[in-house]
Write a protein that binds this DNA or RNA. Structure first.
Length: 875
DNA sequence: GCGTTCACGC
DNA sequence: GACGTACGTGAACGCA
């Protein structure tokens, strides 16, 4: 059976354009709409596998509809230039795919689709239409279905006559009646003023068609509504007429012209390459990838003895640790590149060589690396010291542009030197397929990476200096990477018996809760599945669904909390969620990663990931161990010191972000609060609500705290309204009052946005940089997000700068004073140590002092400190 | 394997 | 009208 797919080209392009960030290729050509259109096209080809396929485009500005109504589509914002320049590219793409497309003067894409669909139906074909425009729904029939884009581009909702009935309660042809009543502001179709979707549906359900509605005006309730309908009879009829899709447009193409042909892979690859659609290329470019374009290289393979000649300074050094987790990990091989040559050294040869070990540990022997921490930790586990690293391209690349998705050698090379080398994934395979390649392939790849580093070092160093980021790189991030490596390798001791005991208790409670919940629900189901839980709460038990997700009902905690007193099951569900989170993520999750013999956990800090300069922590994440609820906080009892008689000491910055804000903005009110060591949320409440300290109520302080939180994290009025459960308008009022109270903060917010628009990026106190290309976006949401980011990043990023510097300073202080205490963790504004008893008093004074003095701001920095036997007790 | 939903921290 | 709202990581589910 023939199957014709018709795509509304302009509509899909429009959707794609707004759904995706403004991508462009190296030549500066915008590609996001073409990209989105392409992904949609590929999905259609794969899922529908149609025998016939055609893309319809709108032609020109005027259509036959303008004869009926000359204002048709007037007032519509003109298509952004960034989008219109992509339309020709879409045609190029369709030609490469050898897919039919057409446009017809005086007609819209809708009419072409309507005409072809009607012809195909008459031939008995199946038809499917893809668009973002609801008008097309009038074409739905037993033979024709319409897929409307929902969210993004490839996420569609398909309408059949049954689905129409379910959604609208009427047959497809009534869509035009609905539009006749409602109008359509985007097409400038007037309809009947005051009638929206709800009223239109009500009227149509009652009377059937627009004509019948207008014939029965006297039966309609509401004086105002009667008047409106009476006054706008003609306008309504005209609006309906405008909405009707022409199914007999004069076409030059026939449905047979839409027959699919095989496409030309070479053309597609060439176009994808030009547009830089890397991810899509893989689908077509299976064989070609290989090393054919790579430059020729020469190197020496060392299986036995490492000679002095190979160990020059400076050298690029690759220590290949291929597994994601580098603790106690295999090293596949080593390469060294320097003035004397390029060498691949087998791991065995290197580790057996005293010369190599001495060179590696010699701080005077300069090394350039990519991901120093990975190598330092992996070598550290094998008892080999590494020092003298003076450049790390991973860190340099991250500082130059944290938003660059990958900082792998191959990607850095491509971005910064147009130098082509294979990615690790291409050489080693990824996921389940990853494995050690044969020795020739491995050695060549490692040497290529070494050569790339040797070249890239100069390029990146130059960029860092241009950006005034060289000090940030050299004095902060590079030393920090070694410090982090040491912390990771040291690890933190976990009392597994304690964890296991907690696990058993939690299991018991979960079983009881599960039984109770099933009884209250009257049926057994998987409580962990929102998909199963939703229908039970909102259908079976009849609770009101307050929020929806794209796949069904939302059952998140904030929804459940609002329903807490409506059904006994709700508090039990909330408790179940809380307990099962503790069980799965924290008890079971942590036990899985505790080292059997040492009882230690070794996390990995990612130093080159966040857009703000913060660290992140994985396998496990030790930056989100529970603290707010007592129940969860007990997990911290399992984190202990590694030696008897030692303590866990924690020091955390007090309100570091707000202090940074006070400093950057120079706002007297805020500065005063900190200089006088006031409770900053109370102070904010006083200033925002214009009351005396003693008149600040709990609620005022709570609101003030939420606003401060919002300022620190850059949330929107929407975000604030969510956190305070108040209408968005009130949230906006809070923000306005805040800014009125702190005028210098308002000035800062304005000037930082201006700076972002002018330079395209914002910076922190230590010149960390974040680019914000969307600050000039014509899309409100994109632009707003970029603006909030512009305001927030200097605050959060400077706070990150400060604690990172404190870590370097503390490390130096520990060395200088020859203390045995060890730094174990960083949690954004907090440092955790293990401390022997005889150093406790000294550390208690030293750490907060170093933290406070690490940077001089216009406000004092303050750190609080505490200690105890476990992390729990350090409170 | 991958996307979605939920929940933890700052 | 689009559209989705601070940043991260991880677990479980359910689809492919």
């Amino acid at each position: 059976m023939n199957k014709l797919v018709l795509i509304d080209g302009n509509s899909i392009a429009y959707r794609a354009f707004f759904a995706l960030p403004l991508l462009n290729n190296k030549k500066g050509v915008y590609t996001n709409a073409v990209y989105g259109f392409t992904t949609m096209l590929l999905k259609v080809l794969e899922e529908e596998n149609p025998s016939h396929l055609l893309v319809a485009f709108d032609a020109g500005k005027t259509t036959f509809r303008h004869e009926t109504f000359k204002e048709y589509k007037s007032g519509r914002q003109k298509t952004p230039g960034e989008l219109s320049e992509q339309l020709p590219l879409m045609r190029e793409l369709l030609e490469a795919f050898d897919i039919a497309y057409t446009e017809v003067k005086n007609y819209e894409a809708d009419d072409i689709i309507g005409t072809l669909a009607s012809k195909a139906e008459k031939e008995g074909w199946d038809v499917k239409i893809y668009s973002g425009d609801k008008d097309l729904l009038q074409l739905v029939s037993e033979k024709t279905s319409v897929a409307l884009t929902k969210k993004g581009i490839t996420n569609v909702e398909t309408y059949t006559p049954e689905a129409m009935q379910e959604r609208y309660g009427f047959e497809p042809a009534r869509i035009v009646d609905m539009k006749g009543l409602m109008g359509d502001s985007s097409d400038n179709i007037p309809g009947v003023p005051g009638v929206g979707e709800k009223t239109a549906l009500k009227l149509l359900h009652e009377f059937g068609t627009i004509e019948k509605v207008l014939d029965s005006i006297d039966q309609i309730s509401g004086k105002k509504m009667k008047e409106r309908l009476e006054e706008n009879k003609e306008q309504a009829m005209m609006s309906k007429q405008l909405a009707v899709i022409e199914t007999n447009a004069p076409l030059t193409v026939t449905i047979e012209d839409a027959a699919r042909k095989g496409y030309n892979t070479d053309k597609i690859i060439a176009l994808f390459k030009e547009l830089e659609f890397e991810s899509l290329l893989n689908k077509f470019d299976t064989e070609e990838e290989a090393s054919q374009e790579l430059e020729e290289i020469h190197f020496t393979t060392v299986e036995k003895e490492v000679t002095q000649e190979m160990l020059a300074s400076p050298s690029a050094l690759i220590v290949e640790v291929p597994s994601e987790n580098y603790h106690e990990a295999d090293i596949w091989g080593i390469s060294i590149v320097n003035e004397s040559g390029a060498y691949y050294i087998s791991t065995e040869a290197a580790l057996a060589s005293d010369a190599f070990k001495v060179w590696a540990a010699d701080p005077k022997q300069e090394k350039y690396m990519a991901d120093t921490k990975r190598a330092v930790v992996a070598l550290g586990w094998k008892g080999i010291e590494l020092a003298g690293v003076t450049h790390d391209i991973l860190i340099a690349s991250y500082l130059i542009d944290p938003s660059a998705g990958s900082h792998q050698v191959a990607d850095i090379a491509e971005r910064n030197a147009q130098k082509k080398i294979d990615s690790d994934d291409a050489v080693f395979g990824k996921g389940a397929k990853r494995g050690r390649p044969d020795e020739d392939k491995l050695s060549e790849h490692l040497v290529r990476k070494g050569l790339a580093i040797f070249e890239l070092k100069n390029v990146l160093e130059k960029k860092l200096k241009e950006n005034e980021q060289f000090e940030l790189f050299k004095d902060l991030e590079l030393p920090l990477s070694l410090i982090l490596g040491k912390m990771e390798k040291t690890g933190i001791t976990v009392d597994t018996d304690q964890l296991k005991a907690m696990g058993e208790e939690l299991t018991g409670r979960l079983q009881t809760l599960e039984k109770e919940i099933h009884e209250l629900a009257g049926t057994e189901f998987n409580i962990n599945s929102p998909k199963q839980l939703g229908p039970i709460l909102f259908e079976k038990l009849g609770l009101p669904p307050l929020k929806k997700t794209k796949t069904g009902y939302s059952t998140s905690a904030d929804v459940l909390e609002k329903l807490a007193d409506q059904h006994e099951i709700i508090p039990k569900l909330l408790l179940y969620r809380q307990v099962s989170k503790l069980q799965s993520t924290y008890v079971e999750g942590l036990l899985k990663v505790v080292h059997e013999d040492t009882h230690k956990i070794h996390t990995m800090f990612n130093q080159a990931l966040t857009q703000t300069g913060r660290l992140s922590s994985t396998e496990p994440n030790l930056q989100n161990i529970p603290i707010r609820l007592e129940e969860g906080r007990k997990i911290r009892k399992a984190f202990t010191s590694s030696d008897k008689g030692w303590s866990i000491l924690a020091a955390d910055y007090s309100q570091i972000e707000l202090r940074v804000l006070a400093h950057i903005a120079g706002d007297e009110g805020l500065l005063e609060a900190f200089r006088n060591e006031m409770d900053v949320h109370t102070k904010t409440a006083m200033d925002v609500f214009h009351v005396k300290e003693e008149d600040v109520t709990g609620n005022m302080r709570r609101s003030a705290k939420a606003v401060n939180f919002g300022i620190v994290y850059g949330i929107s009025d929407y975000g604030l309204s969510q956190s305070l459960s108040i209408p968005r308008k009130e949230a906006q009022e809070f923000i306005d009052r805040y800014l009125a109270s702190y005028p210098k903060v308002r000035d800062y917010m304005d000037s930082i946005k201006e700076q972002a628009r002018e330079y395209g990026y914002v910076t922190t106190l230590l010149n960390r940089r974040r680019y914000l290309p969307e600050i000039t976006s014509s899309n409100f949401n994109r632009r707003s997000f970029a603006e909030r980011t512009a305001m927030n990043t200097p605050i959060q990023g400077t706070a990150a700068d400060i604690i990172k510097k404190a870590m370097v300073d503390v490390t130096h202080a520990l060395e200088e004073k020859q203390l045995e205490s060890r730094m174990l963790l960083q949690v954004h504004d907090e440092l955790i140590f293990e401390v022997p008893e005889h150093e406790l008093k000294e550390m208690e004074a030293l750490v907060p002092d170093v933290m406070a003095r690490t940077m001089k701001l216009d406000v004092p920095l303050k750190a609080d400190v505490s200690y105890g036997d476990t992390w729990y007790d350090a409170k």
